[in-house]
Lab assay of single mutants.
Amino acid sequence: MSGNGNAAATAEENSPKMRVIRVGTRKSQLARIQTDSVVATLKASYPGLQFEIIAMSTTGDKILDTALSKIGEKSLFTKELEHALEKNEVDLVVHSLKDLPTVLPPGFTIGAICKRENPHDAVVFHPKFVGKTLETLPEKSVVGTSSLRRAAQLQRKFPHLEFRSIRGNLNTRLRKLDEQQEFSAIILATAGLQRMGWHNRVGQILHPEECMYAVGQGALGVEVRAKDQDILDLVGVLHDPETLLRCIAERAFLRHLEGGCSVPVAVHTAMKDGQLYLTGGVWSLDGSDSIQETMQATIHVPAQHEDGPEDDPQLVGITARNIPRGPQLAAQNLGISLANLLLSKGAKNILDVARQLNDAH
């Protein structure tokens, strides 16, 4: 009898209710805020589980004197976190989706994509230029951005401005803007500013005609071990179906173009009346040469937790077992079709030249 009692006690200790789920994140304040929001949602869904947040620095956090596009290494903000995932030191990792490459290392998958916040870019102005827009900034004003995508589009749109690289986390960039006289304004992701509670610093939100956004911008991705079915089931509740389908289309477009950090590629997606609209573009580094096109596809946005595919093969690095396969494939095909259209119009040449120029500098 006593033996059975011990077995029952052991089973209770090993039951999922007692389990601590370890969540990996970057150390920056924004990353911690984003991770806290994901953990809060998981806690609400699984009140019996405990969650421990483990923060670590990544290569991208450490190399702050070089433009991201020049470092010449993929997975700048993800490699150390993936290493911890691989060694079973954490069970899942919360990322900004735009930091996750469209091809993940073997053994990993994006197990959830959370509801997207505003994906557009924002302009934050130096205190002396508050009330201005990019259009009304004085001639030769210097605007800071760490992104080739932003610089290429904005140089084309605002030729009277000069664009220079600015690195560091959000706090560091804002301090550089406010305390030094080098920059009249800087460009940042609206979602990051909003998550930090800095709505009052948003001086201008850039519309798609001015600057399309990065693939996955404004959404959070939760990376897990691809074979860890328990954790895949656990994080599945975080999937937002519309965000998922938009981001599958965007990531398929980028992957098929073979774009990345070192080339200016941008997108804009919208879901309306059962249609998914995808606009994508590529630019030369100075913005003088560009190709942009829009395509659409009829896609039914499923309700969360309709029964999805059981075999769960990944699409552009994403596993969404609780979302039907048909809409996911339709979104992926839309991204591939748009990429093929741009490639047929000469996108590869623009991107190759951009890559060579970026590598040469």
Rank of each mutant, 00 (worst) to 15 (best):
L351V: 11
I53P: 15
S57L: 10
E135K: 04
F108Y: 13
L238F: 00
D121R: 02
N200Q: 00
T41P: 06
T136N: 11
T66A: 14
L104K: 01
S262Q: 07
A214D: 02
D352H: 15
F125T: 04
V39K: 07
H256I: 05
S337Q: 01
D99A: 04
E162Q: 06
Y46M: 13
K79A: 10
S45K: 15
H83C: 13
N322Q: 10
G317F: 01
K132R: 11
K62G: 15
H126G: 11
D311A: 15
S75A: 13
V142F: 07
E210D: 09
L351C: 15
G346C: 15
S69C: 13
L134I: 10
I323N: 09
R116E: 05
V123R: 01
I166A: 09
R156G: 07
I323K: 03
R156Y: 05
I248H: 00
G218M: 00
P309Q: 10
K157V: 10
V124K: 05
E80N: 06
P324K: 06
V301L: 00
H120P: 03
I53A: 06
L245R: 03
S75G: 12
V222P: 00
P106L: 12
G168Q: 02
R156D: 07
M56K: 14
R251L: 01
A270F: 14
E139V: 08
T319G: 07
K43S: 10
N340A: 04
F253G: 04
K140H: 08
A55I: 08
L276A: 05
T172K: 09
R225N: 04
C261E: 03
D178A: 07
L244G: 02
S288P: 12
T279V: 08
G317Y: 07
G60W: 09
V94K: 03
P127F: 10
V202A: 10
I248P: 01
N349R: 15
C261D: 05
A189D: 00
P302L: 12
H160T: 13
S147V: 03
T78Q: 10
D307K: 15
A152Q: 04
N358S: 15
L100W: 05
V123C: 07
E306C: 04
T66V: 14
Q180A: 14
K157T: 07
G280V: 06
Q180I: 04
V38E: 04
Q180D: 08
H95D: 04
L188Y: 01
L193Y: 00
E258Y: 13
T136Y: 11
L234M: 07
I291A: 13
R246W: 06
V90S: 07
G280S: 04
V202H: 03
I231D: 13
N118F: 09
T269M: 05
R116K: 03
D233G: 07
D352L: 12
K157W: 05
G203A: 12
I54E: 14
I166D: 00
P105V: 06
G203C: 13
L232D: 05
P302V: 14
L177G: 01
Q180G: 10
G131V: 12
E293D: 14
I110F: 04
R195S: 02
C114T: 14
A84C: 08
A252F: 01
R175V: 13
V282G: 07
A266C: 02
I350C: 06
I299G: 01
P159H: 13
Q275Y: 00
D230N: 11
E306V: 14
L154C: 13
P138D: 10
E117R: 07
K87V: 06
K98H: 02
N340K: 12
F158N: 12
P47V: 12
W283M: 00
V142P: 07
G259E: 11
L238N: 00
F183S: 10
C114A: 06
G326Y: 12
L278K: 02
I336M: 04
R164L: 11
